[in-house]
Simulated assay, not measured.
Amino acid sequence: MSRLGSVIGFLRSYKYYIVIFASVVLVGFADENSVWNHIQNRRHINDMHEDIDKYNNMYNKDMRELRMLDRNPKAIEKIARERYFMKADDEDIFVLSDDENKSKNY
């Protein structure tokens, strides 16, 4: 009984600290709206803002390229040659690639 009495005495003397500690743990980590979840959501929002900036930059680059294609017919020819390996009738195309080193499985 003395052991139980000492535990009860400890709880009575530190009851306010125990309640405060339990509340901090509940609000900080255990609750659905906890501080920990709030920090994780902030991090996720920041990652999404970075993605938005990346996609806006890609959109602006593509729009500049599209405007250039509308104005300059030589740009269409350049893209056709670089991306799709198209050629004029009097030309030959040589494709140099180093894919052999990358495709080997060791």
Rank of each mutant, 00 (worst) to 15 (best):
I20Y: 06
N101Q: 14
Y16V: 15
D92I: 14
F21E: 12
R42V: 14
V7Y: 13
P73A: 01
K15C: 05
K61T: 12
I45Q: 10
F10G: 01
A30F: 12
V95W: 06
R67E: 03
F94K: 15
E32H: 06
R43C: 09
G28F: 00
P73S: 02
Y55F: 13
G9P: 04
A75L: 05
M1R: 08
N60H: 08
R83N: 04
N72G: 00
V25G: 00
H49D: 14
A88C: 04
A30E: 11
N57K: 15
L66V: 01
A75P: 04
I52G: 00
E50N: 12
V35I: 08
D90P: 03
I45C: 07
K78L: 04
E50V: 10
N72W: 00
D70R: 08
D90K: 05
I79L: 04
K78Q: 05
M1H: 08
H49Y: 14
R42I: 15
I93H: 04
G5T: 06
L11R: 06
N105D: 15
N101R: 15
S13M: 07
E82H: 02
I8W: 05
I76S: 06
N46Y: 12
I45M: 09
M86I: 02
V95Y: 11
I45P: 01
F10Q: 04
M63I: 13
K102E: 13
L69G: 00
E77C: 02
L69P: 00
W36T: 10
G5W: 07
Y106P: 15
